[in-house]
Amino acid sequence: MNKIAYTAFIAFVASVLTLVSVSALSGADRDAAADEALGPITLEELAEHDNAESCWKAIHGRVYDITDYVPRHPTDEAVILEWCGRESTAGWDNKRPGVPHSPRAATLLEDYLIGRLVDERGEPELAANPAVESPDDGVSRAQSPAADERLHRAMLGLPQDGHYRGVFIDRGVIQVNVTFDLRDGRFESIDYRHLAYRDVDYLTLAEGDDLHPVRVQHEQIAERLVGEPVTAIFALYEPERVVDDIDGFSGATLRGAKVISAIRDGLNRGVYSWP
């Protein structure tokens, strides 16, 4: 009896180790397929496969063709067929109320993966994510402070992503009026809504006009700040660092500080409209 118990113990441990190591060796190259590599499938396409002959299901944003598995599912077929052609995350997460399918089942499910669920525009179908679409509240839920990037930027005093407008005014007259968009703390675009000095509206100047180079210089500022971090505006204290040839123009003076001031005015005002 003792020998049998010992032999069985060793055989068991050896068998389990064999299983694990064979699996590790053969499955090393198999990673969860990246979503981008999966073909897009819309809810309309999904809905066409709603029967035992062809049963597709969307679970957590991915689409699975489980037609071949249906006969092997341990419950009555009706239970599993009920979800064919539908967004089935709720069914998956509630094998019994509150009890999700096992990791074993999850591993098995990946064998039937055929695509990712998208909306008409080809964007990932958010409805697939029950955290976003919850039937009981139409209002989007408060995000966790651990995941709310806007909150993070605000807490560190960093500018939020969004659309801004700002002006530089001197002696009651607007000289510079800019609009710009920020994304991830960088300029996405900069435009002048107004650029004037001593009754000259620079935005109306054409090539050949005396002061046209000043307009060009300002446009270069806008062009060259795009893609740069917001902090790059302080380079304009020495505009020659940003624009091509500050002295090449006849008598024109570029006041980079005015642009800095207008942009800082925009930042102080805060987001004009959210992206």
């Binding site: 389990v16 299983l19 694990v20 064979v22 499955g27 096992s102 074993r104 999850a106 591993t107 064998d111």
Partner: peptide, 17 residues
């Protein structure tokens, strides 16, 4: 071993979820 017929990976996840 029963899960090996599905795949080795399923077998291992069955035993070690």
């Amino acid at each position: 071993l029963a899960a090996v017929s599905l795949s080795l990976e399923v077998a291992v996840v069955t035993l070690f979820p």
